[in-house]
Simulated scan of single mutants.
Amino acid sequence: MSASAESEDKRPASRRVADDLIARIEADEFAPGASLPPYRQLADHYDVAVNTAIAAVKLVRDAGLVTIKRHVGAQVRDRTEDVDVAGEINAVRQAVVGLRVEVDRVSAELADLEARLAMLAERSGSDTT
């Protein structure tokens, strides 16, 4: 980002850095389980103070994208495990109900066809098997 573009951006520096890190995580630049660069390296990369880099990473943590561990740093969370269990249960229940209705319909159609086949076979004197 150019110096003039930065001066026009009214967001605090920590928010700008956090937003960029979020975009990079969402673009899979940092895979789940990967560590973000150390704070000092982030500060150098974004040309901000180390405290600003720390604040930015905390914003990314607050967005649920990383965990911060003492002496380890910030690691990207595996969000594939973030599942709305109640929502999933409801969706599966609805799918089961839909399948039962479809199975009942197909079973009735099959029974009708089998009865028709038996009647036609009886009329023609042929074996249905």
Rank of each mutant, 00 (worst) to 15 (best):
44 D>H: 13
26 E>K: 12
113 L>P: 03
51 N>V: 05
89 I>P: 01
103 V>D: 03
31 A>R: 15
28 D>S: 13
96 V>L: 06
85 V>H: 03
107 S>C: 13
9 D>G: 05
52 T>F: 10
50 V>H: 01
118 A>Y: 04
68 I>T: 07
108 A>S: 15
66 V>M: 01
115 A>Q: 15
21 L>G: 03
76 V>N: 02
105 R>C: 07
10 K>R: 12
45 H>N: 15
38 P>D: 13
1 M>S: 13
43 A>E: 04
44 D>E: 13
8 E>F: 03
2 S>H: 12
63 A>N: 05
56 A>Y: 02
20 D>A: 11
71 H>P: 00
27 A>V: 09
2 S>E: 11
88 E>N: 05
70 R>E: 04
21 L>D: 03
52 T>R: 07
97 V>I: 15
86 A>P: 05
86 A>I: 09
96 V>Y: 00
114 E>D: 13
62 D>F: 00
127 D>W: 00
59 L>T: 07
103 V>Q: 09
85 V>G: 02
49 A>F: 01
99 L>K: 15
120 L>Q: 14
75 Q>K: 10
2 S>N: 11
14 S>R: 09
86 A>T: 13
5 A>T: 13
98 G>M: 10
6 E>T: 15
121 A>H: 02
63 A>I: 02
127 D>E: 08
9 D>W: 01
18 A>T: 06
103 V>L: 11
5 A>K: 12
103 V>E: 04
24 R>L: 04
118 A>V: 09
57 V>L: 03
35 S>P: 00
82 D>A: 08
58 K>Q: 08
21 L>R: 06
67 T>P: 00
76 V>W: 01
101 V>W: 05
61 R>H: 05
55 A>S: 12
71 H>F: 00
53 A>Y: 00
69 K>A: 07
26 E>H: 07
106 V>A: 15
16 R>Q: 06
19 D>W: 01
92 V>E: 08
22 I>M: 09
85 V>W: 05
111 A>L: 02
48 V>I: 11
68 I>G: 10
44 D>G: 07
100 R>P: 06
93 R>E: 06
62 D>G: 07
3 A>S: 13
64 G>W: 04
12 P>W: 03
85 V>T: 06
124 S>F: 01
44 D>A: 14
32 P>V: 05
47 D>C: 11
32 P>H: 07
30 F>S: 04
60 V>D: 02
101 V>R: 14
120 L>K: 14
116 R>N: 04
41 Q>Y: 06
68 I>F: 06
52 T>S: 08
27 A>W: 01
126 S>V: 14
105 R>H: 13
115 A>N: 14
3 A>K: 15
39 Y>R: 08
31 A>T: 07
19 D>M: 06
129 T>A: 04
8 E>I: 07
37 P>Y: 00
66 V>Q: 02
121 A>S: 14
116 R>V: 00
99 L>C: 08
77 R>N: 08
116 R>S: 13
55 A>D: 11
26 E>Q: 12
41 Q>L: 15
115 A>C: 05
64 G>F: 00
119 M>L: 11
56 A>S: 07
53 A>V: 08
16 R>G: 03
83 V>G: 04
103 V>N: 09
8 E>Q: 10
49 A>T: 10
101 V>D: 15
129 T>P: 01
